[in-house]
């Protein structure tokens, strides 16, 4: 079973589950965390159980996970009374952090204590990391003053996106640019990352990075499925 962890409003995630239906793909949303059936034991001696798409399953049935959720947010918890939503959101996020970390199957991207999918970096951290791995960057300015609005980003006429998945990359960019994106993914310790550059050629500068790439390309989706299956065979 493949599990896609996502917001219940995440339409691309739902479409992905439909596309991967033949591989028993299922959606895990915060609603599943409010269904009796979860059992997560710390000692690993007793079988842990999960609730995925409303159905109770053994954790050993899960063969791979794609996470498209940074955290559980209050406003999704409409089934919880308002006064409890902030606490429940924090508890659900903390539980998912531990649960995803403990899974013995591929999890893309693996959670960190700050985010359920990779690092929860601010734009400043991405710019800094890009510069550290040798990608040209434009200095990022942030000004905070009462009454002022957040500054607008530097505009780039034709930015291009390269999406890194393990050792592969997708996007119409020069190989040198793809290698830089790969280095940035390594620095962030993620397997899946979309990186925008100011253009497709060597020497182009960093624009932004996104842990949750758009699923516009069938090639990327097929590669993601193959990646999860292959990694399970070779690693777990």
């Amino acid at each position: 079973m493949l599990v896609v962890v996502a917001s219940r409003h995440d339409e691309p995630a739902k479409a992905l589950v439909t596309r991967w239906a033949a591989h028993d793909a299922r959606l895990l949303t915060c609603e599943d965390l409010s269904v009796a059936g979860w059992r997560h034991y710390s000692d690993g001696r007793r079988p842990s159980r999960a609730v995925i798409s409303g159905r109770e399953v053994g954790v050993e049935e899960i063969s791979g996970v794609l996470t498209r959720l940074p955290c559980v947010v209050e406003h999704e918890l409409t089934h919880i009374i308002p006064v409890d939503r902030a606490y429940v959101a924090a508890e659900m996020t903390a539980f998912l952090t531990a649960w995803l970390t403990g899974l013995r199957c591929p999890v893309v991207n693996r959670p960190t204590p700050t985010c359920l999918s990779g690092p929860n970096w601010r734009p400043e951290q991405w710019v800094y990391a890009a510069a550290q791995v040798g990608i040209p960057v434009h200095p990022l300015h942030r000004r905070v003053s009462l009454g002022s609005q957040p500054g607008s980003a530097v505009s780039h006429s034709k930015p291009v996106t390269v999406t890194v998945l393990g050792d592969r990359w997708f996007g119409s960019v020069a190989p040198e640019v793809a290698i830089q994106a790969r280095r940035l993914a390594d620095a962030a310790k993620v397997e899946l990352l979309a990186v925008r550059f100011s253009g497709p050629d060597p020497g182009c500068s960093f624009v932004s990075a996104n842990i949750w790439p758009e699923f516009g390309s069938d090639d990327l989706l097929d590669a993601l499925l193959a990646y999860l299956n292959e990694k399970r065979r070779t690693t777990y």
Partner: peptide, 10 residues
Amino acid sequence: DIELVVSSKI
């Protein structure tokens, strides 16, 4: 008030 500039340093 805060002003930050980030590139290869902050």
